[in-house]
């Protein structure tokens, strides 16, 4: 008797599925017509070698997806229950750099609330200033400096400080789809873009993310740290945190839904039904990316995902 490894996940989309192995980091993008046998095995979790086609068995064995066990102990191999856990109320603070006062305040906020990741967008060389400010602090643990300034991009990364090029492509694209166990687990229950994030714009206004509409305060105000501590626990600030992809019209049919980070604001139709105003760059109904030959928009397929309803001429 063989068991399917707990490292394996199968995410079914409308036309294609993703078979992923967290152990080896292999990803297989498979047509749903070919995925039936694996899907059944995956549900069963245990099988006898004779039950499976030889090619499939060889594939599973070669890719370290199965283990040899005995029928009498199969109940000792529990199904893994992935839950995202974080010991930080806020994981990411994003700052659009404008001056040193806001930089210092952002760092102060990280220290006071224990935010481990600080991301700063800017084109001015403030790397030394950052290094000096954080050297004696426990938080933020790391600073990612995001810039399009070529002279800054030439600089070497420092301890706890990484310099990254600003990504001008559309947010969700082929290159940003990522298989990683933490992202996967987070995506099961949370919105991987909005969850545990806080953003300060170049004028000091505080929001959940750059795309968010709601402004909560300005760091020029007095007692800004106390105020921030109070707003990050409110339902309003956390509005989108639990909108995971299985609640969203189109995304729930996409095989990449546990591998993507999507910056579009979701809108609620009714509880547990959310939609987006714009399409992302992948159409899971025809499994094509924007720019690929044969690509069509979701709308052009006759699918409606709006405030009023979700409807589709395709069998869903």
């Amino acid at each position: 008797m063989y068991g399917i490894s707990s490292n394996i996940t199968l995410t079914k989309g409308y036309r294609k599925s993703i078979l992923a192995n967290f152990g080896s980091r292999d990803i297989f993008h498979i047509n749903n017509t070919e995925v039936k046998e694996i899907a059944t095995l995956f549900e069963q979790r245990f099988f006898e070698k004779e039950e499976v086609s030889p090619e499939l068995f060889q594939f599973l064995y070669d890719h370290r997806m199965i283990y040899k066990t005995q029928k009498k102990i199969q109940h000792h191999f529990p199904k893994i229950n992935r839950i995202y856990e974080s010991r930080h109320t806020i994981e990411f603070l994003i700052l659009d750099y404008s001056n040193d006062t806001t930089l210092q305040k952002a760092i102060e906020i990280c220290s006071a609330i224990r935010i481990p990741n600080l991301l700063i967008r800017g084109n001015k060389n403030i790397i030394d200033r950052i290094r000096n400010s954080i050297s004696n602090l426990s938080y933020p643990e790391s600073v990612t400096f995001i810039t399009s300034n070529p002279s800054l991009l030439k600089l070497k990364n420092l301890f706890r400080i990484v310099i990254q090029e600003e990504d001008i492509q559309s947010f969700v694209n082929r290159d940003t789809i990522d298989l990683n166990p933490i992202l996967f687990t987070e995506s099961l229950s949370y919105h991987t873009y909005f969850h545990k994030k806080i953003y300060i714009d170049s004028n000091g206004f505080v929001k959940n993310t750059p795309e968010s509409k709601e402004v909560f305060l300005n760091i020029k105000e007095s007692n800004f740290i106390e105020k921030i501590k109070n707003i990050i626990i409110t339902k309003e600030f956390r509005k989108y945190w639990k909108v995971h992809k299985d609640l969203c019209d189109i995304c729930k049919h996409c095989e990449f839904r546990h591998m993507c980070v999507d910056n579009r604001i979701p809108f609620q139709r009714i509880p547990k039904e959310w939609y987006h105003e714009n399409e992302c760059t992948y159409n899971p109904f025809i499994s094509k990316w924007q720019g690929e030959k044969g690509y069509q928009s979701i709308k052009s397929l006759g699918i409606r995902s709006t405030k009023d309803e979700f409807s589709s001429p395709l069998k869903i």
Binding site: G3, S5, S6, N7, G23, Q58, Y61, D62, R64, Y67, H76, F77, P78, I80
Partner: peptide
Amino acid sequence: ESVVDYRVYNNDTPYLEEPYTI
């Protein structure tokens, strides 16, 4: 079980680790 394994496995690392209830 059958055909030669074409992957090179590091013999020091386990083949697989799975949650277990004793």
